[in-house]
């Protein structure tokens, strides 16, 4: 409630503050790029191109039809796999988190499965599903589901016993109990899981496309590397970074909306 509103001095609007923040961030980035430019130009190594050359390559590439024909499939696989993982992880996590017995037996197995490095899955699913979007989406789903699943389980377990008693006394229906009590209790944890799984999904998207695909950012990375077209390769890498931060920022904004009560409450303490 309070936090934020009185932070701005009189006469300073939010737009001003946002601008100031952007300018400060922009200066840091500009400084880093400048440093890179100086070092790379000095090194004069064809395998270490300066940002100016990458920028011109990127401008060329990103204006070409290659952008759409590769980014769209990648994005579809990434979001497809991640959304399936998010939904499956949330549903399974709530189910497992609320049934003590199952969770006790499965805890160990789940902890083990999670410690497996997700890229290991690529060859497994390549054999199982063949090369193509099914393999990529399956790999992403399977690798990204764990953080959501385990976090949701944790969150679902943490419903306060008094809250449980309250729901029992007022004979709240099963659906309302799950959707109206357990899910909101677990939601902060669900979002924490979703953030981790988004970065895993991005990694797996690139890796699975590198390994076997006929389109996508990872595929282009492999091609440009093969052609030793390093500025173009770098521009794809930068694109992956941009994609990751845009998606992450979107998720953070969604979380702020959905969990407004949670952030206000933590902030009010």
């Amino acid at each position: 409630m309070r936090a934020g509103h009185d932070r701005a001095a009189p006469g300073v609007t939010w737009a001003h503050l946002g601008l100031a923040w952007l300018v400060r961030r922009g200066l840091v980035v500009a400084g880093a790029v400048l440093l890179w430019q100086v070092i790379a130009s000095g090194a004069d190594n064809p395998f270490f191109p300066p940002p100016s050359r990458i920028a011109s390559a990127a401008a060329q590439l990103w204006l070409s039809p290659l952008l759409v024909t590769n980014v769209l499939p990648s994005l579809a696989r990434l979001l497809g796999g991640w959304v399936i993982a998010g939904m499956a992880g949330t549903v399974l996590g709530i189910g497992l988190g609320r049934s003590r017995m199952v969770a006790d037996y499965l805890e160990f197995v789940l902890a083990f499965l999670r410690t497996l490095p997700p890229p290991l899955l690529v060859p497994v699913f390549m054999v199982l599903c063949g090369i193509g979007p099914t393999m990529e989406v399956t790999t992403i789903t399977f690798g990204a589901v764990w953080p959501v699943l385990l976090n949701t389980m944790d969150g679902a377990k943490s419903v306060d016993p008094v809250t449980t008693d309250t729901a029992r006394v007022f004979r709240v229906s099963r659906t309302r109990w799950v959707l109206g009590v357990v899910l909101p209790t677990a939601l902060p944890k669900v979002f924490a899981g979703l953030r981790t799984s988004l970065s895993i999904a991005l990694i797996l998207m690139v890796i699975s496309e590198l390994a076997g695909s006929t389109s996508g950012i990872g595929f282009q990375l492999a091609i440009t590397q093969g052609q030793l077209d390093l500025p173009a390769m770098w521009s794809w890498i930068i694109l992956v970074g941009l994609l990751g931060s845009v998606l992450n920022q979107g998720l953070v904004l969604a979380e702020r909306r959905v969990l407004a009560w949670h952030h206000e409450r933590v902030g009010a303490r």
Partner: peptide, 27 residues
């Protein structure tokens, strides 16, 4: 109906005051 001793833990933080009072009436 029960009014619990641990009143704070008995209320749902994501619901408003009115939402909490209404919650048991939903079903």
């Amino acid at each position: 109906a029960v009014v619990f001793q641990d009143y704070g833990r008995s209320l749902l933080p994501w619901r408003t005051v009115a939402g909490n009072v209404e919650f048991p009436l939903r079903d």
